Simulated assay, not measured.
Amino acid sequence: MKHSNMKHSKLMKHIKYMLIGLITGAANGLFGSGGGTIVVPAMIMLLNVEEHKAHATAISIILPLTVVSAYLYVSNNLVNWEITLPVMLGGMAGGYLGAKLLNICPAKVLRKIFAVFMILASFRMLTA
């Protein structure tokens, strides 16, 4: 009986992982980004992942989703390369800086910064 419960628990955990991935991938593909705003809170609240690991893991999760979405956008000629290339270079520098800052930022501060960012982004979306 105990072995059966362990199998069921493991199956449910994997289903939870897949659902989080499905929702994150759909948001990333539909909105062109936003996967992090879904996957980070989901990992923290539903999977009990530590704050710093959730943010770092989100990048690893979002990378392949972004590659798939980017391929579809590029193949449908929806990308403005004049904007993409310089912003991509700045984004790479910012990504490096952000990853370095993640290592020194306390979880409590990181949570507050992320919350403020999400509030500002949602406010901007609602008023646009």
Rank of each mutant, 00 (worst) to 15 (best):
E50A: 04
T84C: 13
K108Y: 02
G25E: 00
F123G: 04
V39Q: 01
K2T: 15
V74S: 06
L65Q: 09
S33V: 09
F114V: 04
L11Q: 13
A27N: 00
N5P: 00
M88D: 06
A26N: 01
L63S: 04
A99N: 05
K53A: 13
G91Q: 07
L46F: 15
V68T: 11
H3Q: 11
K100L: 09
M43T: 01
I23A: 09
L78N: 13
L85T: 08
L89I: 07
V74F: 14
H14D: 14
N48G: 03
L78D: 08
G91K: 03
Y17V: 13
L19W: 06
T127L: 15
G29D: 02
L102G: 00
G98A: 14
M118T: 12
L63M: 12
H3G: 01
L126N: 01
M125P: 09
I113Y: 13
I83N: 05
M6A: 10
N5S: 13
K2P: 13
G98W: 03
N80F: 09
I38P: 01
Y96E: 08
G25K: 00
I23F: 03
V79G: 08
F114M: 10
P64R: 01
V49W: 03
H3V: 11
V74G: 07
L72A: 12
I59L: 03
G90S: 07
F123A: 12
V68E: 10
N77H: 12
I23S: 01
I62W: 00
K108L: 07
P106G: 04
N77Y: 15
A58I: 00
A93M: 11
T66V: 07
F31C: 15
G35V: 01
L46E: 07
M1D: 08
M125R: 12
T37A: 11
